[in-house]
Amino acid sequence: MTAIADTAVPAAARPAPRVVATSPTAAAREFLTFRLGAEEYGIDILRVQEIRSYERPTRLAHSPDFIKGVIDLRGRIVPILDLRVKLQCPEASYTDFTVVIILDIGATVIGAVVDAVADVVSLTPDLIKPTPQFERQGHVDPAFVTGIASVGERMLIVMDIEALLSSDEIGLVSKVAQG
Rank of each mutant, 00 (worst) to 15 (best):
47 R>H: 14
86 K>A: 04
83 L>H: 06
80 I>C: 03
71 I>Y: 02
56 R>S: 08
53 S>Y: 04
94 Y>Q: 13
70 V>I: 10
41 Y>P: 04
75 G>L: 03
88 Q>L: 12
76 R>V: 11
51 I>E: 00
62 H>R: 12
76 R>N: 15
54 Y>V: 00
73 L>N: 02
75 G>C: 04
59 R>S: 10
74 R>D: 11
85 V>Y: 10
81 L>F: 14
79 P>T: 00
48 V>N: 04
51 I>D: 00
86 K>D: 00
70 V>Y: 01
76 R>Y: 10
82 D>L: 14
90 P>C: 09
50 E>R: 04
54 Y>P: 06
84 R>Q: 06
93 S>D: 15
93 S>I: 14
81 L>Y: 09
90 P>T: 09
80 I>R: 00
81 L>Q: 13
62 H>T: 13
79 P>S: 04
61 A>R: 14
67 I>G: 14
56 R>G: 08
89 C>V: 12
87 L>F: 00
51 I>G: 01
86 K>Q: 01
72 D>H: 07
92 A>N: 15
45 I>K: 10
57 P>V: 01
81 L>A: 14
58 T>L: 06
67 I>E: 07
60 L>M: 10
89 C>M: 15
78 V>F: 04
75 G>R: 01
86 K>C: 02
72 D>P: 04
77 I>S: 11
78 V>W: 08
78 V>Q: 03
90 P>A: 10
71 I>G: 01
75 G>T: 03
90 P>H: 03
